[in-house]
C-alpha cells in the first residue's frame, strides 16, 4: 500500500469520524443530507458483498466493517434517534434517490467488466459513489449557514477522492497496475464534483470568513 492510498483511506475515515462526532456529541445533524448518507450505505452494502468470502488483509476487512457500520449508524441516527432526527432539514433535503440509483444501475448492467451478479453490483457501487455526494452539495447550497463540522466533512470526503487519484497514478507507474477504466472514470467524475466546493472552501479559509456557497 502506498502513501497516497493510506492517506486517502485515513482522510475518508476522518470524514466519517467528524460526521459521527457531530451527530453523537452535539446531537445535531443540521446541514447533513440523509439522502447522501443512505446512498453511501447502499454503496458500501453493494460493494462489500464479498467481505466475508474474499479475504485481502485484516486492514481491509476492518476498514470495510468501519465504513459499513458507520454509514448505517449515521442513517439510523438521522431517522430514528429521538433528538438527532429533530435537527434534520427534511424540507431542504429534497433530492430524489431514484434519479441517481436507477441510471447508475442501468449503466452498471450495460457497462461492466463481467456480467455476473457480484461484478454488476460492484460496478453499480462505483457509479453510485461517484454521484452520491450530489444531494449533500445541493443541501449545502440551500443552507445559508454551513457549520464548521459539516464543511470539514465534505472537505475531507473530497480530499479522500483526490488522494485516491494520486494513488492510481502512483500504482500505474510502480506496479504495472491493471487499468480499470470504470474505476478511473467514475473516480475522476466524483472528484470533479467537489471542484466548486473546494474553490469556495479555500476562499473562505484564506479570507477567514464563514463558508457560504453562492445561490
Amino acid at each position: 500500500m502506498n502513501i497516497f492510498r493510506l492517506a486517502g483511506d485515513m482522510t475518508h475515515l476522518a470524514s466519517v469520524l467528524v460526521l459521527l462526532l457531530k451527530i453523537h456529541t452535539i446531537k445535531s445533524c443540521a446541514g447533513v443530507s440523509l439522502k447522501t448518507q443512505e446512498l453511501y450505505a447502499l454503496v458500501f452494502a453493494t460493494r462489500y458483498l464479498d467481505i466475508f468470502t474474499h479475504f485481502i488483509s485484516i486492514y481491509n476487512t476492518l476498514m470495510k466493517l468501519i465504513f459499513l457500520g458507520s454509514s448505517f449508524s449515521i442513517v439510523w441516527y438521522m431517522r430514528r434517534h429521538k433528538i438527532v432526527r429533530r435537527s434534520y432539514d427534511k424540507e431542504q433535503d429534497t433530492f430524489r434517490h431514484l434519479f441517481l440509483i436507477l441510471p447508475c444501475f442501468l449503466l452498471a448492467l450495460v457497462i461492466n467488466e463481467r456480467f455476473t451478479f457480484k461484478e454488476v453490483m460492484w460496478t453499480f457501487s462505483l457509479y453510485l459513489e461517484a454521484v452520491a455526494i450530489l444531494p449533500q452539495l445541493v443541501l449545502l447550497q440551500r443552507t445559508r449557514n454551513i457549520d464548521n463540522l459539516t464543511g470539514q466533512y465534505v472537505f475531507l470526503l473530497g480530499g479522500y477522492r483526490a488522494l485516491y487519484i494520486l494513488n492510481w497514478i502512483y500504482r500505474y507507474f510502480t506496479e504495472q497496475h491493471f487499468v480499470h477504466w470504470i474505476t478511473w472514470i467514475s473516480g475522476l467524475v466524483q472528484t470533479l464534483l467537489y471542484a466548486d466546493f473546494f474553490y469556495y472552501y479555500f476562499h473562505s479559509w484564506k479570507n477567514n470568513e464563514k463558508l457560504q456557497l453562492p445561490a
Binding site: 492510498r5 485481502i56 488483509s57 460492484w122 494513488n167 491493471f178 474505476t183
Partner: peptide, 10 residues
C-alpha cells in the same frame, strides 16, 4: 487475476 487486483481498494 488482473480483474481482482483493484478490489484491494476500499
Amino acid at each position: 487475476s488482473s480483474n481482482d487486483d483493484v478490489k484491494d481498494e476500499l
